[in-house]
Design a protein around this nucleic acid. Sequence first.
DNA 1: TATTGTTATACTCTATAACTATA
DNA 2: TATAGTTATAGAGTATAACAATA
Lengths: 161, 161
Amino acid sequence: MSQPEKALEEGTQPQEDAGTASDEAMRDFVGYSLKRAYMGAHRNATEALEPFDLRVRSFSALTLIVANPGIPPSRLAEILQIERSNLVVIIDELETRELISRSRDPQDRRRFALHATLCGRQLQEKAAAAKSARQEEIISRLSAGEYEMLKSLLRRIEEGA
Amino acid sequence: MSQPEKALEEGTQPQEDAGTASDEAMRDFVGYSLKRAYMGAHRNATEALEPFDLRVRSFSALTLIVANPGIPPSRLAEILQIERSNLVVIIDELETRELISRSRDPQDRRRFALHATLCGRQLQEKAAAAKSARQEEIISRLSAGEYEMLKSLLRRIEEGA
DNA sequence: TATTGTTATACTCTATAACTATA
DNA sequence: TATAGTTATAGAGTATAACAATA
C-alpha cells in the first residue's frame, strides 16, 4: 500500500540543514501517528480527570466496574489488558477511597465480585462528564461521520494487530 | 457529539453477571480505542524490529537521523517528544553500534551533528522494509482510501490535543 | 544569562515469579 | 492439578534537577 522508504527517496531529500528537520520519514508508519494521537488524548484525559483525583487507568477500572457490577478482578484485568498483579493496587486504591467494594463470590470463593458504591457511581458520572467535555475539544474539528469513521478504523486496526 | 454515559443507561444494562462483562462503557472515549490500537501496532512493530536488535524508539531515532543528516540531539528530542536526557542513552547505543556518528557543529560548538553511517543507513533500510511488511498485516483490511483517511484523522486528533 | 549535552535520580508503568486459598 | 488474588521485585519508560561547555 505505502512504501515508507518513499519519503527518503523522493519526498524530503536529506539536507544538511538541521533547521528543516521534520518527522516526515516516520509518517508512513501508522504506529507513529497512532502513538502521537494517543499521547495527546492521554494528556488531555489526565488533565480532565485530575480534579477528581483519578488517573486514566483508575477511571477506566471504575467505569468498567460501574458498568459491569460483580465483575471479578481477573476479568477486569483481561479487559484492560493489564496483569492481575498490577490491577491489585488500582483496586486497592479504589476500595480505600470507598468508591468500590470487594465481596467474595459465593459460587466460587476464589473470586471477588467488584461493585461500585453510591459514592463511586457518582464520582464516575461526574468524571465521565468532565472527560467527555474535554474530549470535545479534540474531536470538535471532526464531523459526526468522521468521528464514527475514526472509531471504526481504530477498531479494525486493533483487531488486526 | 457523543455521551459516554449513554452506554450505561440504555446500551448494556448493568447486569449481575460477570460472564457478559464488556468494555463497551469505555468505547465512547476515543482515547481508549486509540490506546488499544496503538498498543497493538507497537507490539507488532516491536516484533518486526526484534531481528535487527532495534526497539521502536531507537528505530525512530535512526530513521530520523537518516532522513535529516546533521540533526542535533535537541531537535531530535523535540521531534520525538522525549526529554533530551532520555535521548542520550538512545544515541549512545546507536553510536556504540556504529550506526550513527556524533560530530561537533562548527557553527555552534554546543551542538552535535548526528549522521548515520553507511552501516546505519543499510540497517535502517532493511528494518523499515520489515516493519512495513509487518504493518501490511494490520492495514491490509483497510482500503487505500481508508488508510489515508485514518492517517488524516489521526493527524487532526494529534493537532487538536 | 540562556542553551546543549550530560549525569544522576526518582517516579510510573509493566512483566515475572512465587505464594495462599480455593476449586 | 489448575485458577484467583496477592506480594515482591525487576525492568522499561518518563520526568526533573543540576552541572560543564559554549553562546
